[in-house]
């Protein structure tokens, strides 16, 4: 296993035994998160993301498999690395009758951090002025901020955030996004589990997609969505003439609200064909696949039981 990896998991499996039998939440999952940057952790509801995170943090025991954080085997050596890991798992969980400040003070004192660290964390997440109010009076967004403040008490090198923007207003989402970006830029490795795929695409440098507890794809975000566009949006004054010319040249086209969608990875061929027909372009936009479409393709295929190989990554 590489020293460059902050999180490594191999053959991870988690079974839940209940009255109705055994349910497999995570099945032979491999996970590798390199040091630095923001790594997205994606999957539909119930795909095993939170269970995986909980196993990494020692809150749940793996049925099978091996996990390492900063090269240390966990949960056996978790105490040696837990001070370097900040985490928000699922919804924020604090004592509802204590103020936000008191909740943070208890946590910071348990690791011997000075009380002023609490003030700094409260200020960083913008809770100054409400920090002495009871936690139960907080909105969901404020609870999320408090949970993020708690992760900052340790000055972590690895931040694991499970749906951190849940309940935040657009301004709050933007703030958190910027905070995550800043942390990533400062060398903190962030594992971001989120359903908001556009957000993941904006913030993350790499991502892992899982479905039904299994790895579907993993790699750099650019590789996952495909490096070059496979289609272009063409805007022209005479749509019908342009369509005829492109079809005659052997290019598949589809009319859209604003123009034509042309299936080709060669923009020069499109411009040459239209130029030869004396049709002058007013717009040519590459149509890239986004993370959402990759995610839906992978997870839908997984639901149908197909084997999927992601571009540029493991499957």
């Amino acid at each position: 296993m590489s020293d460059q990896l902050v999180i490594e998991a191999t053959g991870l499996r988690k079974e839940f035994r209940g009255r109705k039998g055994t349910r497999v939440a995570v099945d032979d999952l491999d996970l590798a998160v390199p040091a630095g940057g923001v790594h997205g952790f994606l999957g539909p509801n119930g795909s095993g993301k939170t269970t995986t995170i909980r196993m990494l943090l020692g809150l749940a025991r793996a049925t099978r498999g091996e996990m390492r954080l900063f090269g240390q085997q966990v949960p056996a050596h978790l105490p040696a690395v837990i001070d370097r890991v900040g985490a928000v798992v699922e919804s924020p969980k604090f004592s509802p009758h204590f103020s936000g400040r008191r909740n943070l003070l208890l946590l910071s004192r348990s690791i011997g951090a000075p009380d002023r660290q609490v003030d700094q964390a409260i200020e960083t997440v913008g809770l100054t002025g409400r920090d002495r109010d009871r936690y139960k009076s907080y909105s969901l967004g404020m609870k999320q901020r408090l949970a993020i403040a708690a992760t900052l008490l340790k000055d972590p090198q690895l931040l694991i955030l499970d749906e951190p923007t849940n309940g935040l207003d657009p301004a709050g989402i933007r703030e958190i996004r910027e905070t995550i970006r800043d942390l990533g830029a400062r060398g903190v490795t962030v594992l971001l589990s989120s359903h908001i795929l556009a957000e993941v695409q904006q913030v993350c440098t790499s991502a892992t997609i899982i479905g039904n507890g299994r790895l579907l794809a993993s790699g750099k975000v650019d590789d996952l969505v495909g490096g070059t566009a496979a289609a272009y949006a063409v805007t022209v004054p005479d749509q019908a003439a342009a369509r005829r010319a492109l079809t005659d040249a052997g290019l598949a086209t589809t009319p859209t609200e604003t123009g034509l969608r042309v299936e080709s990875d060669d923009p020069a061929r499109i411009t040459r064909t239209l130029g030869a027909a004396e049709i002058w372009l007013t717009g040519l936009t590459p149509l890239r696949r986004d993370l959402e479409s990759v995610f839906l393709e992978l997870t839908e295929a997984d639901t149908l039981g197909q084997h999927t190989t992601a571009p540029g990554g493991a499957a």
Binding site: L57, V85, A87, L153, K154
Partner: peptide, 8 residues
């Protein structure tokens, strides 16, 4: 669970 994230 929050407490155990600080003292495992």
């Amino acid at each position: 669970s929050n407490q155990l994230l600080f003292e495992s």
